[in-house]
Write a protein that binds this DNA or RNA. Structure first.
Lengths: 208, 208
DNA sequence: TTGTATACATACATACATGTATGTATTCTT
DNA sequence: AAGAATACATACATGTATGTATGTATACAA
């Protein structure tokens, strides 16, 4: 049972991260002690302090496991060849993000923790700074897409790309937050897609 | 200095609530101790325990000071006589809520705390349950407004009142959250109003 | 095969935060 | 005017989280 080869250590590390996810979700980040995480993972605090510097470091590591995929996906989508359809691309991308939230339990859990189970102040700050940076980066890219949409004549004349960007960002943020807080209140795949269609339909040049 | 008449006690109580606001905002709810709040207020923990049962009770009391006004305002708006214009009314109401966020420092601080400085789990639960109840109540009323707008022919034919409600709710939620997290990123009065205009324009029956 | 680094578990020292008990100076009541 | 209640301050007892120091068994390298 106590063999501790290199691979075993990685298993332990993952077990700690999984346990942290469960306990953070159930009790909130600040109220969970490393002792509770250790017990949930079937190890002692010694193991946690071996793999991570402290709770903040453990928290950051937990985020890293799920943070990368979506941004990469977005970039890949943008570079997808063929005729340009930035509006359609954005709508599809946002829909995909919502679907992902419903499909992947790990992804969903981490985002519940990020948005409703921790505080944006104090020790965890480095993790949040990182998140804000990613958000700013995405905002720039989305605004560029809207500018391109306007040049292609996809947008109704009254639509300002910057405002459209802020609105879409806020809408997505709000959907995440409200649905994660009360997932039973509606179906995020169908209703989420409907909300996006409603928004993008309002932006398009052709009335229908 | 130590006169403690009835009115003095209320002054102390308010001072504690003000201090709690400041410290919660600066350090996050879970990381602030009652000792820190007491020091900030210029009293000792004895005073806090006299006025409040514990930290959770203090937190709830802090919310109560700002929670009521907006809901009341909304109801008053809805009952305002004259010709029916539910879409215009909703847009105005949402704009007012955003303006309020910019105008009242107390209001803004409390909402920053609520949305980014505390965890939706554990001890504070009663306060959050209350908040969710208020949200559900508002959702019902807003959906009713959209239904009325549809009957009046204000809505474009493709707009489902329920989806419109969810979208508006998420949008407002997202604006609150994202702006409160980084208030310097845009002006919430002008840009907020523009975002609402963009959304509501997309809903209306007449293209322009 | 023997030393050394790894991967933890155990033990300890310290720092806080909390709740309560008690003290005390006023204020209010009668 | 005297007792009771108010509005706190002070003191204490307890629990709990944290970080580190130390122990230890195994893997691995030479």
């Amino acid at each position: 049972m106590v063999r501790r080869t290199r691979e075993d250590a990685q298993v332990t590390r993952e077990a700690i991260l999984d346990a942290a996810q469960r306990v953070f979700l159930a009790r909130g980040v600040s109220r969970t002690s490393l002792e509770q995480i250790a017990r949930e993972a079937g190890v002692t605090r010694g193991a946690i302090y071996w793999h991570f510097k402290d709770k903040s470091d453990l928290f950051s590591a937990m985020l890293e496991r799920v943070r990368l995929p979506l941004s990469d996906l977005a970039d890949a989508y943008r570079q997808g060849g063929g005729r340009r359809d930035p509006l359609g691309m954005l709508e599809k991308l946002c829909g995909l993000a919502l679907t992902k939230l419903d499909a992947s339990e790990t992804y969903r859990k981490v985002y519940i923790i990020l948005m409703t189970r921790c505080e944006f102040a104090g020790e965890m700050n480095p993790a949040f700074e990182r998140q804000l940076e990613i958000d700013r980066d995405n905002l720039r890219k989305v605004e560029q897409d809207f500018v391109e949409a306007r040049e292609l004549g996809q947008l109704a004349p009254h639509v300002d790309p910057r405002i459209a960007t802020l609105t879409l960002y806020s809408l997505m943020h709000g959907i995440y937050q409200s649905w994660l807080r009360t997932p039973q209140s509606y179906d995020i795949r169908t209703d989420g897609a409907a909300m996006l269609r409603l928004f993008f339909t309002g932006l398009r040049a052709t009335g229908h």
